[in-house]
Amino acid sequence: MSTQTWTQARVRALHDDLVNLYEPVDRETEHGADPTANPGEGVRQLVTTILSQNVADENTSRAAAALFNRYADFAAIEAADHDELAETIRVAGLADQKAARIQRALSAVREETGGAYSLAFLDAMATDGAKAWLTDIKGVGPKTASVVLNFHFGKPTMAVDTHVERVSKRFELVPESASNAAAHDRLDEIVPDELIYPLHVLLIRHGRTHCSARDADCANPVCETYCDCNFCP
């Protein structure tokens, strides 16, 4: 099918079919009733999402635990010796780059707020402006920004990880040749705002359960309806 066939109505149908295959997504179960109640939680999520870049969830959790156990607060992380910080998060991979990205991000937040480690100011900004502010930080790309903005603030911007990108391309929601940044733009354009978060979760579930990178199992009603990849019969 052509990407031009993807109307919002068809995206809604895809969401409903994924819900029927798996189960409805409960945002409160995933992230709590009000993740913005603690101003520091947004910064913690930004730091944790930087740690998660190109690494398995288990190693992200281990690196985050080591980081927040070693340093008393965000000020201590920003002021930490670079090599010490990199060693602390080494299990997350790319430790030198991630240490630098974390310290740059914390510095940018502190300078923007006049001393506070809080992203509350992003809540009042339009989604595009908030995403632009975050991605102006070297090492913070559209996925990292979208995770923070959607998961923490509920802003309508799709976080496109490897699963979401793979399934979206196989379903031709986005062109096969699209860059990750272009995939973010395309999905933000065609997915209804209220479905951004649940569809993100459902596409990940589908990518992990059926639509894996090398051995896809297309014998399911969602693939039968929406997919025509090389693994489909």
Rank of each mutant, 00 (worst) to 15 (best):
Gly154Lys: 10
Ala76Ile: 07
Lys169His: 03
Glu87Val: 02
Leu67Glu: 05
Thr88Asn: 08
Gly139Asp: 09
Val201Ile: 15
Ala108Leu: 02
Ala100Ile: 15
His152Phe: 13
Glu172Gln: 14
Phe153Glu: 06
Glu112Gly: 00
Ser179Met: 10
Ser118Glu: 12
Ala182Asp: 15
Lys155Trp: 07
Leu94His: 13
Asp73Ala: 04
Asn69Ile: 00
Ala105Trp: 08
Arg104Ile: 09
Glu165Asn: 14
Ile204Ser: 08
Ala66Trp: 01
Glu165Phe: 00
Ile190Met: 13
Glu78Leu: 11
Ala120Thr: 15
Val147Tyr: 09
Arg205Ile: 00
Ala72Asn: 05
Lys143His: 11
Ser146Phe: 09
Ala126Thr: 13
Trp133Ile: 10
Ala126Cys: 00
Ala100Asp: 15
Ile137Leu: 07
Ser146Glu: 07
Val201Asn: 01
Arg90Leu: 01
Thr127Arg: 07
His152Pro: 09
Ala76Trp: 03
Ala92Gly: 10
Leu94Cys: 05
Ala75Tyr: 02
Leu106Asp: 09
Leu187Asp: 10
Leu149Tyr: 09
Ser107Val: 02
Asp161His: 09
Lys143Val: 13
Lys98His: 06
Asp136Met: 07
Ala124Asn: 09
Ile137Cys: 10
Glu111Trp: 01
Asp185Phe: 00
Ser179Cys: 10
Ala66Asn: 15
Tyr197Leu: 13
Asp81Trp: 04
Leu202Asp: 03
Ala76Asp: 13
Pro192Tyr: 06
Ala159Val: 06
Asp96Val: 12
Ala105Arg: 06
Ala132Gly: 01
Thr144His: 09
Gly93Cys: 05
Ala99Glu: 12
Gly154Tyr: 09
Ala126Leu: 12
Thr135Gln: 05
Arg90Cys: 00
Gly139Glu: 06
Gly141Glu: 01
Gly93Gln: 10
Ser168Arg: 06
Phe171Gln: 02
Val191Ala: 03
Ala72Met: 01
Gln97Met: 12
Leu134Ala: 05
Ala75Gln: 11
Ala124Val: 01
Arg110Glu: 09
Arg170Leu: 08
Gln97Phe: 00
Ser179Ile: 06
Ala182Phe: 01
Gly154Val: 11
Asn180Trp: 02
Ala124Tyr: 00
Ala79Lys: 13
Val147Thr: 12
Leu195Thr: 02
Leu202Gly: 05
Glu172His: 12
Pro192Lys: 10
Leu94Tyr: 14
Met125Arg: 14
Glu189Asp: 15
Ala159Asn: 04
Met125Val: 02
Glu84Pro: 00
Phe74Arg: 01
Leu195Gln: 14
Val191Glu: 05
Val191Asn: 02
Glu112His: 14
Leu199Ser: 12
Val147Gln: 05
Glu176Pro: 00
Phe121Asn: 03
Val109Ile: 15
Thr135Val: 14
Phe121Arg: 08
Ile196Gln: 07
His184Thr: 04
Ser107Thr: 15
Arg208Cys: 08
Leu149Pro: 12
Thr88Leu: 01
Gly154Arg: 11
Gly207Asp: 09
Leu187Gln: 12
Arg208Ser: 01
Leu187Met: 08
Leu149Cys: 08
Pro192Ala: 09
Gly207Thr: 05
Glu172Val: 12
His163Thr: 03
Leu149Gly: 03
Asp185Val: 13
Leu119Val: 08
